[in-house]
Amino acid sequence: MLYINCPHCGMRSQNEFSYGGDASVKRPELNKEVSDQEWDDFVYNRKSLRGKHLELWQHISGCRQWIKVERDTATHEIFRTFKADEEVA
């Protein structure tokens, strides 16, 4: 079970969180013309990569904040975690 450092609450076990997918996906702006390809990339297409992955988790049984977690999908190592509005360098 992963041990995730919630930037708001501290170290918490995985069973307090729910997974939210790839954090690098940006929603196209509202009212903007979007091509089929762009929209498909936003809704469906994911890299499913092996290695370092920036992903979203929600601390659903804690502070209910969505956070960003930088995790290795192969080893489960967690490198860094960020608040929702924190820029990931």
Partner: peptide, 13 residues
């Protein structure tokens, strides 16, 4: 609720 929180916190803060 999670859906609303997602948009408020991440998409349209």
């Amino acid at each position: 609720l999670s859906h609303l929180e997602y948009y408020l916190q991440l998409v349209w803060p």
